[in-house]
Every structure is written in C-alpha cells, then in structure tokens.
Simulated scan of single mutants.
Amino acid sequence: MTPSIASALMPLMRGLDAETAHGIALKALAAGLAGRDSGRDDPVLETHALGLRFRNPIGLAAGFDKDAVAVAPLMRLGFGFVEAGTVTPRPQPGNPRPRLFRLAEDAAVINRMGFNNGGLDGYVARLRDLPADRPAVFGANIGINKEGADPERDYPGLYAAVAPFADYVTVNVSSPNTPGLRDLQGEERLAAILDAIAATRATLARTPPLLVKIAPDLADDALAPIVTACLTRGVAGLIVSNTTIARPPLRSPHAKEAGGLSGQPLFDPSTEVLRKVFRIARGRLVLVGVGGIATAAQALAKIRAGASLVQVYTGFAYAGPAMPRRLADGLAALLKRDGFASVNDAVGKDA
C-alpha cells in the first residue's frame, strides 16, 4: 500500500471513534501497510541542528506513537525525524475513556490521555530492535507516572535507559493531563530536574542532546527563567509547544471537553510563544516549532519565527501518510521562492 492509497482510506477511519481509529492506524503502520515514501528531499531541506543531520526539518511529534511500536514504518513515510513517547517508568492506563476527541469543524483535537503507555521496559526493548541505518533521526520523549513519581529520580533514570538508542531525548514537563506536571516548568523545579539529569549524564558513555518541551500557556515572565535554566544546565533545545488548556472560539460540539487542545487553533498562540523564546534565547538553543502545522506555509512560518525544526501531529492525524512528502516538497518550493539557500537561512527572519 502506498501513502496515497492509505490516505484515501482516511475518511473510513473517521467513522470510528478517535482513539479506536488511532489504534488501528498504529497497528497498520507497524505492519507496514502505510507504504513507503518514494520521493526525494530537495537539498535545500537538509538541516544541521543538535549536532545531527536531518534529511528535512519535518518531524512527527511525541504522542502519536507512545510506545515506539511503529518508529521504523513512520520514518519510511518521509519524516526527517520521529519522536516516540511519552514513556513513563512504569506502565499506566491513563485516564478513563473517552479521552480523545476530533474537532473536525476546527481542524483540531482535544486529548486527555494521561500518559497512557506500556512503560519503559517494553519501550526500550523496541528501541533495541530499531535498524542502525534508519532513514530519520529518532527522539525519545520521557515523562513521569501519575502516582509514585519522584521527578529528580525518574527523569534521570529514564534518560539513562533511552540514551543508548535515541538521537536526542525530550523531557516532557508540559502535558496538561498529568496532575502537577506543568508545575515542573517553574524555575526551581525545572532546575532541580535538569541538575539531576546532568549528574546522570556525567556518568554515561553516550549522552544524546537534551531538549525540554514547554506549554503554550506560560506567562511571558516565565519564559526567560526557563531559557536561563536550560542554558546553564546543558540543555540543547526547547520544543515549543505542547497542547493548550486555553479555549479560543471553537465550533465543534466537543469544544468544552477537558484536556489539551491541538491543531489549527494552536497555531497562532504557539507561534507567538516560539517567537518570544527565540528573542530570549538569541540563537543559544535549538528551537522546535510545533502546534497547528498542516501546510508548508505554516511550517515555513514556524521556521521564520525561530524554529530550526518543526513537528506535526494533529495535521498528520487528519491528512494521513502522504502528508510528510507534501510538506517537504512544499517547504522546499517556498524556501526557494523566498530566496533562502537553506532552512537555517530562514530561521528567525520574522522574529
């Protein structure tokens, strides 16, 4: 099955509830039924960031493949990088269903999944089986359990476990669906977690770059302390941003469901936070722009706002497996139209 055929089946999947459809999609991907991208990336898309080479700057955000069951098939769709997780030390079921809602009228999704995943042991076992010659960069996204968590113990342990297999590791302190998690974005708590990870990293033979994923709902005066905490503790980059608990005007009947909102309504606020972080960081952190990207023009807008790399999730869930190639080809055309010789040349031009 080619990505175009798989995409044609997407309307049938939308007849199912969102979480059931997502589970079927993951199983189909893991079985290789989504096909393979046969396109070629334009050289203008090659990106160097985090000490890594990306074939293109378009990535899949964490949350789509929580348990790393379909990493290699997802990479074959044309992504420049794939991030799997969030993985927690112990398995947990997450919040009660229903907990995933399509807001089709708004090109959005609300989720309150609650870090449902099979735990670290199975996740690492699947990473061990990834091919050495994988076609894209791999990122591991780590988080803490809802109960019995000790962030200063758990994040370093998670980092050490995935470090042998990941090209970079993201600390998720910004999901709105684990009680108290977003409090860890505060300067003192974040600094304590990063100090603990730094102590563990000093003992490891392999230390992939560390990123922190932040929320779009942070107050402006909270951004500079986060940047400072990251810069002084060896963090290589920030992912801006996670889902939002804000509720802009929405048309869907699911608009009032609790949880994190993603998709088109997140594009403007997350891009504004990205722009502010870029101004504060002044090139000292690699920024990954995520939130509401569905078109090549939106991907370029994130880059021009300060992102060296971008990620998709909700747009991919709606558009299907042909999306990565469409975005890559469209982005290459727009970069050339605007006179940029590389992605890096466009980073922050509108910030």
Results as ranks from 00 to 15, higher is better:
A140N: 01
R251D: 01
A68P: 04
Q298G: 08
R97L: 06
A30S: 14
D167A: 11
V290D: 08
D129Y: 00
F138M: 05
G315N: 04
A258I: 15
D41I: 00
A136C: 03
R99H: 09
A31N: 07
S175D: 04
F101D: 11
E188C: 03
L204A: 08
D183E: 15
D345F: 00
N145C: 07
D121F: 00
G85F: 09
S270R: 05
T200S: 09
S175E: 12
H22G: 11
K256N: 11
L103Q: 13
D329E: 15
L300A: 06
A196S: 15
F316S: 03
F81S: 14
F101M: 12
R128Q: 08
H254M: 14
A333M: 07
R126I: 06
D345G: 03
A34D: 02
D150Q: 06
R275G: 04
P96I: 05
N116C: 11
D329K: 01
V347K: 05
D217F: 08
L103C: 14
V227W: 00
K276D: 01
T47I: 10
T47S: 12
Q92W: 01
V173I: 14
P89T: 12
A25H: 02
R40C: 04
E46T: 15
V290T: 15
A255L: 09
L16Q: 15
L16G: 12
A25S: 15
G51C: 08
M1P: 00
G320L: 14
Y123Q: 04
S342G: 05
A8W: 09
Y123A: 13
I144M: 01
F316N: 05
A132K: 02
K213P: 00
P156Y: 15
L120C: 09
V173N: 09
R153E: 05
Q298F: 13
I197A: 11
A341Y: 00
A229M: 11
D217P: 04
A21S: 13
S4L: 07
A132Q: 06
A219T: 10
N242R: 09
A108Y: 07
L158H: 15
G118E: 14
G306Y: 05
Y168L: 14
R112G: 06
T20Q: 11
I239Q: 07
P131G: 02
P91T: 03
T203W: 00
D167R: 10
T232M: 02
I245R: 12
R201M: 04
P216W: 04
A205R: 03
P91D: 11
D167S: 14
S241L: 06
M113E: 07
V277G: 07
T243H: 10
N344H: 09
A215V: 13
I303Y: 03
Q92E: 04
V171S: 10
P93V: 06
G289W: 12
R282I: 07
R325K: 13
